[in-house]
């Protein structure tokens, strides 16, 4: 006759013993999963932060600067990344700077603020010239140093005084692709520079390509007023208002008629 209670005890002990490896494996798997998930979550958060912080200075920059100074722009996100990784408590706020950009387009295109040292930029340029000289090691060392210095959080101002040169560049591009946005841009720039005849011409060209661009009609009318053709400007604006019911055009018309805009 079997001793069943004793046998049951032995069986229970065996079950516990045999389930230990499974329990350990399960526990380790759960821990690994939790740690992995936690790591991934943290990682994705930091990436999110980095992405958003990088976006702010990009918005600040004008179209011009992107083309002219690509090296400087590359420096910018790196610096921003470093800032976000070192300071994880960065509070993100929506940037309203673009409003100023719209209002003061002329100023922003002439003076652009970048996060880099002007001195260091000059030095890197000189290093590139020095390269063929026999003292290669020294040059390499200074290059490394200079690159490191680029990351320092000082601000520099690059003043742009070559607007006319830029306009020519845009005109070249316009001639290639006949993009009304470019001709409008040129018209605005010439208007700002006081070259009203050229502004008038480019506004006219823009209107011929696309007659629905409000800004172009505004520049066109303003240029006419500046060229002492007030009546023609009023007539043109009236026709445009009839066609588009533009409130901006109406305001300008009122100002011209009242003599506020001369």
């Amino acid at each position: 006759m079997l001793n069943i209670p004793e046998l049951e005890k032995r069986w229970l002990r065996y079950k516990i013993k045999s389930s230990i490896p499974y329990a350990v494996i399960s526990l380790i798997s759960i821990i690994v999963l939790i740690v992995g998930a936690n790591y991934l979550l943290n990682n994705s958060n930091t990436i999110e932060k980095t992405k958003t912080t990088v976006r702010v200075p990009v918005e600040k920059k004008s179209h011009y600067v992107q083309k002219e100074t690509p090296k400087k722009q590359k420096v910018q996100p790196r610096k921003q990344e470093m800032q976000t990784t070192s300071n994880t408590k960065t509070v993100l706020k929506p940037s309203m700077n673009f409003l100023h950009t719209i209002k003061n387009e002329v100023q922003t295109t002439q003076v652009v603020t970048l996060h880099a040292k002007p001195q260091t930029l000059k030095k890197t340029a000189s290093v590139a010239v020095v390269q063929p000289k026999p003292v290669k090691q020294e040059v390499a060392q200074t290059a490394v140093k200079l690159e490191k210095e680029e990351v320092t959080p000082n601000y520099i101002s690059i003043k742009r005084r070559d607007t006319k040169k830029d306009i020519h560049e845009i005109i070249k591009r316009f001639k290639k692709n006949h993009n009304p946005a470019l001709s409008l841009f040129v018209a605005k720039k010439y208007y700002e520079l006081g070259e009203y005849k050229k502004a008038y011409n480019y506004a006219l060209i823009t209107n011929q390509i696309n007659q629905d661009i409000e800004d172009s009609w505004i520049v066109f009318a303003k240029s006419l007023v500046k060229l002492n053709q007030k009546q023609k400007a009023i007539k043109t604006l009236k026709k445009y208002i009839d066609y588009s019911s533009s409130s901006t055009a109406q305001i300008l018309l009122n100002e011209i008629q009242s003599g506020k805009f001369k």
Partner: peptide, 16 residues
Amino acid sequence: IKYIEMAAIHTGLIDA
């Protein structure tokens, strides 16, 4: 399965 394992423990097929 419990009964089979108990029998295996008793006959020495399972070392418990």
